[in-house]
Amino acid sequence: MNGKVTVTHAQVLAWRLRRQGLAPRTDASVPEVVERLAGVQAQVASSAQLAVASRQVSPSPDAVSQALDARSIVKTWAMRGTLHWLTPAHMGAYLSLLGAARTWEKPAWQKAFGVSAAQMAAMGEAVDEVLDDRVLTRQELTDALLSRAGFAGLAGQLSSGWGAVLKPLAWTGRLCQGPTRGQKVTFAAPRSWVPGWRGIPEPDEAAAVVIPAYLRAHGPATPEAFDAWLLRGATRKATLRGWFASLGERLVPVEVDGAGGAYVLAEDADELARTEPSREVRLLPGFDQYVLGPGTSDARLIAPARRKAVSRAAGWISPVVVHAGRVVGVWDFTDEGVAVTLFEEDAEVPRAGLEAEVAHLARCTGREDRRLVVRRG
């Protein structure tokens, strides 16, 4: 890693807006947007659909469901243990880095969820057999496992909506989500469900895919910011440093407003340095990657006093108003239209920009006659 780029945080935010297809918007397909964002959190399907559509110049209401049906995107537990859409080509790499932490082998995890490391290993082998060329609902999968010796006492863990016991099975390439049956989730084996599945690569190989993908969308960033996005800081520090060091001259250090420690891909350094600050207004849905990438604790993106307005109880991330790259308010759909609450301390946000965003939300959702209501709070 040699050379250094010196930029302002305003440039960083503008660069991320461009790289994520937010300013300007993109004509990319759903899989291209998902890949460009290094995955899309899909815990709340409506928010995930809007995250993709809000980046497209001409969004299609059926595009996401068509991509899922075509398996050009796949839903599985990924970053931070939450459900994500990933593209088949890179899905294994993301899962590899998540599995590298081996969280289910730690005594604290086993105590919290009541499953031993030996049971998890046996469960992985059983799932390989149970899902061999089959697609099962959660109940069908649970029943199949409970009928086997050694799993009789795990009914509660297997049926839990949080999927804590199923996540390690996803990270080791044993299962992913299949097509829904009505309102029921199904599970399939990636080897039979994911097009071109090549298994789970070694973590060092995977890091050369995932770290650049993250930096293209959310850089410049520190290794610690990457790890917080990946697994809430659960990666061993020496392992994390080794992954970044292995990228060598592919990375360039960046100084942002005088602070060091961050990196960007060498191929992106000149573009970042030339980027002019943005004055664009955007209304982004809840759980948007623009916020999740750097995290809500990034004080240069969200003022610390306003973090609770964005990161709420039970892990809920609010829809946000972005102006000049920073979060300056929150918003929501109401029966009458779109209600925007701008933070009192922020400079005036152009109403024309907010109205244009409300019009784009209407195109994304099919909602018509969307009235804008603006207040300060």
Rank of each mutant, 00 (worst) to 15 (best):
F113M: 13
F113I: 09
F113G: 12
F113T: 10
G114C: 08
G114A: 10
G114Q: 07
G114T: 14
V115A: 14
V115Q: 05
V115P: 01
S116P: 10
S116G: 09
S116Y: 01
A117S: 14
A117G: 12
A117D: 15
A117F: 01
A117E: 08
A121D: 13
A121P: 02
A121I: 08
A122K: 14
A122S: 15
A122H: 11
A122I: 04
M123W: 01
M123G: 11
M123R: 02
M123E: 06
G124T: 05
G124V: 08
G124N: 07
G124L: 08
A126H: 01
V127N: 07
V127G: 07
V127M: 01
V127I: 05
V127D: 03
D128G: 15
D128T: 14
E129C: 11
E129L: 15
V130W: 00
L131V: 05
D132F: 02
D133V: 14
R134H: 09
R134E: 12
R134Q: 14
L136N: 02
L136D: 02
T137S: 15
T137P: 05
T137H: 00
R138H: 02
R138V: 10
R138E: 02
R138Y: 01
R138T: 06
Q139R: 14
Q139K: 15
E140F: 01
L141G: 07
L141C: 06
L141V: 05
L141Y: 06
T142L: 01
T142S: 15
D143P: 08
D143Q: 02
A144E: 10
A144L: 09
L145H: 02
L145P: 00
L145E: 00
L146W: 04
L146H: 10
L146V: 05
L146N: 12
L146T: 09
L146I: 09
S147D: 11
S147Q: 09
R148C: 07
R148I: 01
A149T: 10
A149F: 04
G150L: 08
G150S: 11
F151C: 13
A152Y: 04
A152N: 10
A152T: 10
A152K: 13
A152V: 06
G153F: 00
G153E: 06
G153W: 00
G153S: 13
L154G: 09
L154V: 11
L154Y: 08
L154F: 11
A155D: 15
A155F: 04
A155M: 07
A155I: 07
A155Y: 07
G156R: 13
G156H: 10
G156K: 12
Q157K: 13
Q157N: 11
L158H: 03
L158P: 08
L158F: 09
S159C: 08
S159D: 09
S159Q: 14
S159N: 12
S160N: 10
S160E: 05
G161A: 08
G161C: 13
W162M: 09
W162A: 09
G163F: 00
G163K: 01
A164N: 14
A164V: 03
A164S: 11
V165D: 07
L166G: 11
L166N: 11
L166F: 02
K167M: 11
K167C: 03
K167H: 08
K167F: 01
K167W: 02
P168T: 01
L169A: 06
L169D: 03
L169W: 00
L169N: 03
A170V: 05
A170D: 10
A170H: 14
A170Q: 07
W171D: 08
W171P: 03
W171K: 12
T172F: 00
T172L: 04
T172E: 11
T172G: 12
